[in-house]
Amino acid sequence: MSSVGLSEERIDTAVGKVQVWRAGTGPPVVYLHSAMGEGPGLAFLEELAGTNDVVAPVFPGFGESEGIGEIDDMEDAVFHVLDLLDQLGLDAVPFVGLSLGGWMAAEVATRYPERVRRLVLVNPAGLYLPDAPVTDIFGKPPAELAAIMFVDQSHPVAQMMHALAERYDDPASMSEIPLELLLPMVKSMSATAKLAWDPYLHNPKLARRLRRISSPTLIVHGSGDELIARAHAEAYAAAIPEARIVDVEGAGHMLTLEKPAELARLVREFLA
């Protein structure tokens, strides 16, 4: 299966102009990114574009997308996603979402099940389980974050976080971190805070709404995910009428980065 490079589009929405990464032809599939704002150059999307029209919007506040000032919480986020679907002429479409993006996709699917044809939740946030709380991502130095998010610490993104961490460890050199290196991270975390600071990475009302999701749902859990425990995948699977779990060995939280080919295959099979 060949992979296709992503190209950028800018779409006008009610909150402002947002970036959308796009590639491939075939049935459309929407990818909602995590708190890290991954998208450009993501091998998983390029793989998937071999068979599908991949639509990967950059959420307001991330990358160069405008409009985070108009968005205060997940409720606003859902309306933004709906707005985007309308702008892109997508009526009912499959969603793939990682972590924060998985949570967002589930929120859309509980409210507007008719707009979600299939649902793939990859290490989704969104629930609170007293016995398996989600690890705190806010205020952690980059090296610790990398250790939590990746099984493979030699992954280029993990490596970049470790390189940044060396500066963090020496406060005197913090001011020497190039702003263009820091800025994307700062923007991503700020936008994430808007949606997920309190309640922390969940919506207390989501669990009892999951029964409204009518699409077949695949929940993908990275067996090495140290941010969100498997119990969350199990809770999603138990509450969504037509759902099953697939475990991916050797992958951590950032599963779309660590196992792009395997995930693309799983998604393709599920959508077929």
Binding site: M189, A193, W197
Partner: peptide
Amino acid sequence: QPPGYTSV
């Protein structure tokens, strides 16, 4: 520095 506390 919590996220969003300081503007860009």
